[in-house]
């Protein structure tokens, strides 16, 4: 029997399985790349679109939603009324965050969009979600988001949701 041949074949197959193990982990950054390409789950500042002209011929209603994972610790609120914006227009809205507890807290907001197709058209110039939030006991802060909904947004997309979920950090659930 050809033992060197066996050894060579098995070595190759072992390498293949090691490569696939690495690939399993590589799916994590690959998934992020995919999300960036499609605009899902963006959490970094985006350059403004080249054409910043405002399309005043139509407007989109942007619903602002706030979710909080640890309701005991925080109060996190979105502006109650939706905002009407023209594509290309620079918009500023403010969320509210309050530390309800007696100790300093650190947390972070994670953005999410609906419908999924809207995500690619949200250009955030500045957002509180880029940074961790440090709050002293019972401190209350206003958190601004500055964004443009670019002109590429589909004409039939008339309602878009911008949602943030606030998580406490430094605590294992």
């Amino acid at each position: 029997m050809n033992t060197t041949g066996n050894r060579r074949t098995s070595l190759r197959l072992t390498l293949l399985s090691a490569a696939m193990f690495a690939f399993g982990f590589a799916l994590v950054p690959l998934y992020d790349v995919f999300c960036d390409l499609t605009g899902l789950n963006r959490d970094a500042a985006q350059a403004l679109a080249n054409n910043t002209q405002v399309d005043a011929s139509r407007s989109v209603r942007i619903e602002l939603v706030a979710n909080v994972q640890d309701g005991a610790l925080w109060r996190f609120a979105a502006p109650r009324l939706p905002v009407e914006v023209h594509p290309g227009e620079l918009v500023r809205v403010e969320y509210e965050l309050e530390n309800l507890s007696d100790r300093p807290l650190v947390g972070r907001a994670v953005p999410s969009y609906a419908p999924l197709a809207a995500a690619a058209h949200f250009k955030k110039i500045d957002c509180f979600c880029f940074r961790e939030q440090h709050l002293a006991p019972h401190e209350k802060v206003r958190l601004p988001v500055l964004f443009v909904l670019d002109r590429g947004v589909a004409r039939d997309m008339k309602v878009v949701t911008l949602s943030y979920t606030f998580f406490a950090l430094g605590k294992r659930t």
């Binding site: 293949l16 399985s17 090691a18 696939m20 193990f21 690939f23 399993g24 982990f25 294992r172």
Partner: peptide
């Protein structure tokens, strides 16, 4: 099997690390 069992191993390793190593 050689192609996908390691991917499962990777997935559950990530779960394990999420559960125990923060």
């Amino acid at each position: 099997l050689i192609a996908v069992m390691p991917v499962l191993a990777g997935a559950v390793t990530m779960l394990l690390s999420d559960r125990n190593f923060g």
